[in-house]
Every structure is written in C-alpha cells, then in structure tokens.
Design a protein around this nucleic acid. Structure first.
Lengths: 225, 225
DNA sequence: AAGCTTCTATGAAAATTCTGGTTATTGAAG
DNA sequence: CTTCAATAACCAGAATTTTCATAGAAGCTT
C-alpha cells in the first residue's frame, strides 16, 4: 500500500510519514502542491493525504487537478479549517474524506482503513490451491487459466468445501447445509455432485482434488505434480 | 439512485427523506435497526444513511451485520455522538463516512456526492460492451450506431443491470429495486422485461446479451463474434 | 386509440433427482 | 500375504421437477 502525503509543514509531514510507515505503508512526501499534484497524477498511489492550506497551489486546487486528469486515487483531506464551507469545498473538489486538525491518530488510521477497504479489491473469492470461486459470478477459475460456470447446486457444494478448506466434511453435513436439514435428499446426491465438480475441476486444469475419505466424507486436497 | 435511511427519530428521518427526494434520489426509510439491516442486505441500495443511536440494534451493529453479509453498499453514519472513539468505532464497523449531528445539509449532500462519485455511479452514461444507456433521454445506444428509446420500466431494469456490470442479479433483487420491495409484482415481470430489453438490444445491433443464469438470475455478457 | 405495463398460458430447456449397475476399497478370515 | 464378502463410491442415463422465454390478451394511463 502506497501513500502520498502532500503537506508543507515539514514537522507534520514527517511525523505522518513515520506514523504510517510504522503501520506498514510505503509513504512518500511532497512539500508543496505543485510537486504533489505531479506525483499524484502518476496514479501509482493507493491514497493521497492532502493538506488544504499550502503556499502556492492549495489542497482544493491539487484535488481538482488530480481529478481532472481522471486519476481516481482516494483523497483524504486534512486541514485546520473546520468551517462547514471548507469541508463542502473539499468534498466537491474531489476529496473522499475530510478530517480537521488536530486529529486523533487512531481516527486517521480508521479513515485510511475505511478508504482502502472501499477501493481494495473486495475479493469476494474463496481460494484453494490454484483455484478460486468467484461468488459474484458463480465461476470456478484457475489462477491465470480457464474458468467454468457452476450451477446453483454445484456452487453451494463447492463453496461449502472451500469454506472448510482441508477439513473433512461428512455427507450428512453437506446434505444438511446444501439441501437443507429437513430435505429428503439422500447421500447419493452428494456423490453425484462431487462427481460433477471433479469433472469441472479437471476441465479447467485445477490442481484441487476432492478426496473421498472413507466413512467420513470428503475433503479438498492439492494435487502434487 | 436509491438511498435507504435508517433512523428511529421519525421527524429527522422524514425530513431527510424529503430533502433527498428533492434532490432526485429514491429514498426508503426504516425506523429501526433490525428492519434497516434486513432491507440493506437486499443489496439494492446505492447508499445507506445510518443513525448510530437507536433502540434495539444500534448503527454499529447494523453496519457490522450488513458487512458480514458481504454487502458493499456505501454507508454514511450520522450521529450526535461526536467523541473520537465513536467515530473510530463507526469506521471500523464498516462505515465509509462519519458525520456528526447537527450537520449542515449542504455538507451532507457533498458527502453523499463524494460517496456516490467514488462508486462510479454518478456518471451520466452507463456502458457495457459497445452499448450505453443515456440517463437523460432513457435511450439505449450502440457506439456509433443505432439507438432506441426505453420505457420507464425497461429503463430501470436496464440501468440496474448496467450498474451491476457482469455480476449476477437475482430476480428478487431486480424486483425489489425496480418494482419496490413491497410491491406485489412477481418474478415473471422481470422475465418479461428482460425479454423486451433483449429485443431492443438486438434491434440496435448491440453485442450485449442478457444471459439467464439458472436459479440465480441474470447478468450482462458481451457476445463473442 | 396508442403505448406502456401487467397478467396468463404454454412449450422448451435445463437442472435436479432418481435408478440400477459397475468399480474400488476395506477389513476380517483363511 | 491373499482372498473374499461387505461396504462405499462412482457413473451414465432416464425421469422428474423447476425454471425460463415468448406470445398474446387484458388493463391502465394519457
């Protein structure tokens, strides 16, 4: 995670850098608006922390220019100006969050997390071996390879297996979970669907195998080459 | 643009609703946390406005539950609690922005815009494949080609599909979003309107197909030549 | 009436379940 | 260490059920 701090007060800028680096971020600092905007437009940062009041180009101008260049990096505006008008101005200039100084460092970190969480590839994916299950599209895909759609029932079974990772799931458990506790489906249904899934896993070249564990059930396993 | 307000003070809730509807948003209100969470989990809203202090389930709990259900709707938290700890708690619970009462309506609107802008949903045109939807004229058009007018209902369905891009939308979700969660429309209505849209997409030579995903719903797909 | 929306009905398609038979694995007895 | 029942797993295809697409009629609204 790469953060650019644009702040003319060296003291604050440097202490921010230290704080954030302590939390594991890669931090760069620009001490004026012009260079800040220039760096920001590279589009290589995950977040900009932007002071409003700076000599030369102020924070609003930087935000507007960055946005005008279609750069969508999240912007956290940080300033001593606490008037409502200033906050509105900042948000309208393209900021994603507005925090007034003096700020609590824990609050700053919570904001940063919220912003990164929002843009972060909210990976709605379950993974095992080289294979993952996309929850949005019900698609099973091999890392950098083929993919295949699952039917609703196949998807439910696969998801349950992936959630269990390499633990063993009994057929009773799978039945109860996928078909429902009170359905009258029988264990053979599980066997049939495991069969379907094995076929599809093989078709896309997955290294995940559904291993049958006698008397106990099934579990996922990564095939050794 | 659909907003859900979760707020137990009827007066505030209703004036928020009026304010936002005046700005062209479709607004629904839940007067307690439980029903609010239930509605929110439908995933049909573009934004949740969430009060923290409510009897029963409070705002933090609602946010956490909604996030636990993998619902990524933006959350704007609104509350009288102004302590730093509360703001941190809200953000960590999954909120995207934290605003303290009393708030300036212009600031609220600026926040909402910032959040919606971030979702990339404020654009005047939704695009998929070679086809786009003009929000001003309710017109579906193929890049450099023909165009066709959509009826209001067709438009709502198409817009929802385009917002979801290639994610699968269940008929239930489309019903809730387009016809309203409390309408007595049935799933066949969705099927019928998908039929209409397919006809129009074909008529203008679009490469966008509305694929039916059995048991799960519909999704957009670009037709391979 | 025209156009949009809703409703109903029907055939088609696909997913799911069921069935019966074949193959594999286990554990105990020889 | 074999052999052999017994049990479990697997498979292919048929039967069933569910879901989907479409046409056309009916109802509204303007």
């Amino acid at each position: 995670m790469k953060i650019l701090v644009i702040e003319d007060e060296k003291l604050l800028a440097d202490s921010l850098k230290a704080l954030l680096e302590g939390k594991g971020f890669a931090v760069e600092v620009a001490y004026d608006g012009e260079t800040g905007a220039e760096y920001a437009e590279l589009g290589i940062y995950d977040l900009l922390i932007l002071d409003v009041m700076m000599p030369g180009m102020d924070g609003y101008q930087v935000a507007r220019q960055v946005r005008a260049k279609r750069c969508t990096t999240s912007i956290l505006m940080l300033t001593a100006k606490s008037a409502v008008e200033d906050r509105i101005c900042g948000l309208n200039a393209g900021a994603d969050y507005y925090l007034t100084k003096p700020f609590d460092t824990r609050e700053l970190l919570a904001c940063i997390n919220a912003l990164l969480r929002r843009q972060g590839k909210q990976v709605d994916e379950l993974v095992f071996g080289n294979t993952s299950l996309d929850l949005d599209t019900c698609t099973l895909l091999v890392c950098g390879g083929k993919s295949v759609r699952l039917s609703a029932r196949e998807f439910d079974v696969m998801r349950f297996l992936l959630q269990a990772q390499d633990r063993i799931l009994s057929k009773e458990m799978i039945l109860a979970r996928v078909w429902g506790y009170d359905s009258n489906a029988v264990e053979n249904h599980v066997e049939v669907y495991v069969g379907f899934l094995r076929k599809k896993l093989k078709a896309i070249g997955s290294n995940v195998r559904i291993e049958a564990v006698r008397r106990l059930g099934y579990r996922l396993e990564v095939e050794q080459a």
